[in-house]
Design a protein around this nucleic acid. Structure first.
Length: 562
RNA sequence: CGGGGUGUAGCGCAGCCCGGUUAGCGCGCUUGGUUCGGGACCAAGAGGUCGAGAGUUCAAAUCUCUCCACCCCGACCA
């Protein structure tokens, strides 16, 4: 492709609205342009990458027996009402104004609709159906460029099985296929396992990429591969050791002391001698949560311990509940349920609020002084804490969810009456699985992981072009004709070439080439041409080699063979 | 939905606080010429409903109000 005729509007300056690296680079390289919040046009260069990723996914899905569908984005609302998901999705679901249609945010309903009409016997299964198509979700807050959009390309597949064992097989096939896909896309990723009950499934895995632009926070152990969403992550951390001598409780005047840090400074004690109090309201009843020192309450863990409706107490109701404002609340004299974090179990000589403003109590013994206390793991795991599965340490960071595989079970087949007859002639709901991959997210994550201060650094599997050919001065006859020759020679040998045949200054072209980031650059200039040489530059390592004119093709083949 | 911020030429910005002639700058663009190995130079030029609407005023990019769009933080999230 000749750059002089190709629509690649590169940007020298960083666009105002872009913050995350991948978004900035996708805009600067002319891969995408925003049309509205969370809605992007893919320009030719970006679309090539999208097609390459799609093709990798397609190959791996076909390899496990997947059958590609083309499903409608416009869905009758009544199909979605069968599963109750019009309500479940709420405002996320786009509704069409002049007809009772919705824009599909995913395709469980449509696929189940087809299955129930045709998949009637155990002999009809297993089935793996997939599609790579645009999904629509009215995200309240699109962000990070293409990473969270209102319209995005998703590969989703659905499996139909006649037993739970068969579902396990379909699920494992996807697990393997996904690993191959992300490996082929040259992504560094990890897998977070979770037993998510909310959707009625029995198991799921998330494929994640570490990134500051991510919206999930995960705890990860590089050593053993333990990975968990921070909402459920556990860690190996010691509790407080009970002291031999146990003091009695006593009241201390602590004017203007609110935080644990202030309390420690005021009393010259360590934070591991303090019990921090938090008031939550559970189904209308106050609950006191006690944490060691500055440990934070993990509200997800709290919700799973308590069940029902849990919310933090409002500042203005604290005094009514405890007799004190935030900063002076504690277990002594608290009338209501008390739950303490495991680290506080059997602690003595502890300090906590007195439920009287500007007073704290010392010498608290959790064995004697705190009645009816229940101990639970309520902490938010932090970096550097011990991995629960091995001897190494955890790292906590944000991550982007690239893909999700999910054992759906019979939720949709039951709701939509998609049933089959087994060997004994009995009727059962089809057992389903659902598996998604965000195509744009692969693209964005790749760029997040493969760039430098000059621009993107593509690897061959996803690169829009294999080679960026730079003719330094097109007005020079021999430079122009040699460039044309090499351009044609490479193309005839199946190497895709972006040919910078524009009349522009050398520096301009070099910078564009580094920004666009094709794996190999070929630079053709007068000086080296006099010795029948051209320069090859390997973008990734910034290495340049002078190569004989006749050896260009061979060298490039060798470089790509590595 | 809550909090914060931005909106002026294709892009990045100044001007606004303290209202006052033809609204500037850099990049890009057009034409001509000179250059040609790391975002060149000279000359001439084109390009603006100052986000939209209403108001205050002799006079509004500038002050007031309403709305809209976009970004960030939070809430929410398949």
């Amino acid at each position: 492709m000749r750059l002089s005729k190709y629509f690649v509007p590169t940007l020298k300056e960083v666009p105002n609205d872009a913050v995350v690296t991948s978004h900035i680079l996708m805009l600067r390289t002319g891969m995408i342009r925003m049309v509205s919040a969370g809605i992007y046009s893919f320009l030719p260069l970006g679309y090539i990458v999208m097609k390459k990723i799609s093709e990798i996914i397609r190959e791996e899905m076909d390899a496990i027996g997947g059958q590609e569908f083309h499903l409608p984005a416009l869905n009758p609302k009544e199909i979605w009402e069968e599963t109750g998901r019009v309500e479940a999705f709420g405002d996320i679901l786009f509704h069409i104004k002049n007809r009772d249609y919705v824009l599909a945010p995913t395709h469980e309903e449509i696929v189940t609709y087809h299955a129930r009409n045709v998949v009637k016997s155990y002999k009809d299964m297993p089935q793996i159906w997939y599609q790579i198509q645009t999904k629509f979700r009215n995200e309240p807050r699109p962000r990070s460029g293409v990473i969270r959009g209102r319209q995005f390309l998703m590969k989703d597949s659905y499996t139909f099985d006649n037993s739970w064992e068969a579902l396990d097989r379909s699920y494992n096939l996807h697990d393997k296929a996904y690993r191959k896909i992300f490996d082929r896309c040259r992504l560094k990723y990890f897998v977070v396992g979770a037993s998510s009950g909310a959707m009625g499934g029995t198991g799921s895995e998330e494929f994640m990429v570490k990134s500051d632009a991510g919206e999930d926070t995960v705890a990860y152990c590089e050593s053993c591969g333990y990975a968990a969403n921070v909402e459920v992550a556990a860690s190996r951390i010691e509790g407080v050791k009970r002291k031999a001598e146990s003091k009695s409780i006593y009241e201390i005047s602590t004017p203007d002391v609110k935080s644990i840090d202030e309390l420690c400074a005021f009393l010259k004690i360590d934070e591991t001698q303090c019990a921090k109090s938090r008031i939550y309201v559970h189904n209308g009843e106050p609950v006191l949560i006690l944490m060691l020192g500055n440990d934070e309450v993990n509200e997800s863990k709290l919700v799973s311990v308590l069940g029902g409706n849990v919310r933090p107490g409002h500042p203005d109701e604290l005094k009514e509940i405890t007799g004190a404002d935030a900063g002076s609340i504690g277990p002594m004299g608290f009338r209501g349920k008390i739950i303490a974090d495991h680290r506080l179990k059997d602690a003595n000589n502890m300090f906590s609020g007195a439920n009287k403003n500007d007073y704290h109590i010392g010498g608290i013994d959790f064995q004697h002084d705190v009645k009816n206390v229940e101990y639970q793991d309520l902490r938010i795991v932090k970096s550097e804490e011990g991995c629960p599965k091995c001897e190494m340490k955890l790292e906590v960071f944000s991550a982007i969810e690239l893909g999700h595989i999910f054992k759906l079970g019979t939720k949709y087949s039951e709701a939509m009456a998609a049933k089959f007859i087994d060997e004994k002639g009995e009727e059962h709901p089809i057992i389903m699985g659902s598996y998604g991959i965000g195509v744009e997210r692969i693209m964005a994550c790749f760029i997040e992981q493969h760039h430098d201060d000059k621009g993107i650094v593509w690897e061959k599997p996803l690169a829009p072009f294999d080679v960026h050919l730079i003719a330094l001065n097109m007005k020079n006859e021999s430079v122009a004709s040699t460039s044309e020759k090499i351009y044609n020679e490479l193309m005839q040998n199946g190497i895709s070439v972006l040919f910078d045949d524009r009349e522009a200054a050398a520096g301009f072209k070099f910078n564009d080439a580094d920004l666009l980031g094709m794996p190999i650059q070929i630079v053709i200039g007068e000086k080296k041409l006099k010795d029948n040489k051209v320069e090859l530059k390997i973008r990734k390592v910034n290495q340049r080699l002078d190569v004989d004119l006749t050896e260009v093709l061979n060298n490039i083949k060798m470089l790509f063979a590595e």
